[in-house]
């Protein structure tokens, strides 16, 4: 029975992917992609990865969808059929891609059995972090350097996006530019955020011991902020504002500072003293959640579109 369900899900995912590849209209493809992201979230629950399922649904489907839809609306006036790849080229590409997929499928089927796993190692080390969710332990303890560098990647992407503003607008505010704000949207933007913030805080808080965590919570916060900006209840802030920048770097800075403190307290970079590991990690997560929310929101908002005020 579950096999049937899995098969249906996989077939649906592949059908949507093919639809995205073939359909003419970009908006149609993007809407299909959002659906794809949500279904994929369901797929991740079937793989027993609830943390990933939440992240995929929130970021993969949700925020990426908003970003792409806004881009499509922006580009729509200039729709012109670009130089299409020749028929022969397409066939050749299709063969090459099919070969890659087939090679990959063979490799997936040839994975050794029993599968090599770090689950026992992660479980053994879990008590010394004070956490209950092993994924959070991997992200913030065992492989904390990955997470720290990935935060820098997020900030760098934002620097890159901001650098695309014309010189005289740089440092100004981005604009989400809805043509009209329909009544229901404004209503939603007033009602939903309190719930949304509550859910985000909950997600971040349970993340230490149950599925959830900074990314998921941060994304929900970012979504609430975007909703408020889209409904024009609050304008997007000027990108040069110090308060904005401090929120952006707050999480990574605290992470890095505690990392360096590890030299003094726990004998190494990004090492936590066992007795206070959990409060330190939760503190880092709290700051990261805010920073992620700000970064994601500003990434969607894009480069500055109004000149900075005096």
């Amino acid at each position: 029975m579950t096999l049937l369900l899995d098969l249906a899900l996989v077939a649906w995912l592949l059908a949507l992917a093919l639809h995205i590849a073939r359909v003419r209209d970009d908006r149609n493809a993007i809407v299909a992609f959002i659906g794809f992201g949500l279904l994929l979230g369901l797929g991740w629950t079937r793989l027993a990865s609830l943390d990933v399922a939440l992240t995929e649904a929130a970021i993969g489907g949700g925020v990426t969808g908003v970003l792409l839809l806004r881009a499509e609306a922006h580009l729509r006036p200039g729709k012109a059929s670009g130089a299409s790849v020749s028929h022969g080229g397409k066939t050749l590409a299709a063969i090459a891609c099919a070969m890659v997929a087939a090679g990959l499928a063979l490799a997936v089927l040839a994975f050794p059995s029993p599968a090599p796993t770090l689950a026992p190692a992660a479980a053994t080390a879990l008590p010394s972090t004070g956490l209950g969710n092993p994924v959070t332990a991997v992200l913030l303890a065992y492989r904390a350097l990955d997470t720290l560098l990935e935060k820098v990647v997020l900030i760098l992407a934002l620097i890159g996006v901001w650098s695309l503003a014309p010189d005289h607008l740089w440092g100004g505010a981005p604009s989400l530019r809805p043509d009209v704000v329909p009544e229901p949207l404004a209503y939603l933007a007033q009602t939903l955020p309190p719930f949304g913030v509550l859910i985000a805080v909950y997600m971040f808080w349970v993340g230490a011991d149950a599925p959830g965590g900074t990314f998921q919570g941060g994304t929900v916060l970012a979504a609430m902020w975007l909703l408020v900006m889209l409904a024009r209840l609050r304008p997007a802030p000027e990108t040069r504002r110090r308060s904005v920048r401090l929120v952006l770097i707050g999480g990574p800075t605290l992470f890095l500072a505690i990392g360096f403190l590890g030299f003094a307290m726990a004998g190494g970079f990004l090492a936590y003293p066992e007795s206070i590991a959990k409060p330190l990690i939760v503190g880092i997560e709290a700051a990261l959640t805010l920073s992620i929310a700000a970064t994601l929101g500003l990434l969607v908002a894009g480069p500055a579109q109004t000149a900075p005020g005096r």
Partner: peptide, 27 residues
Amino acid sequence: ATPGGFLLVLAVMLPVVAVLAMLALGP
């Protein structure tokens, strides 16, 4: 770990500290 290993951490993290400081302190 070797005694001088922490230097590698510094080599990677020092520029990161600079990026964060640049954002905090402004152009």
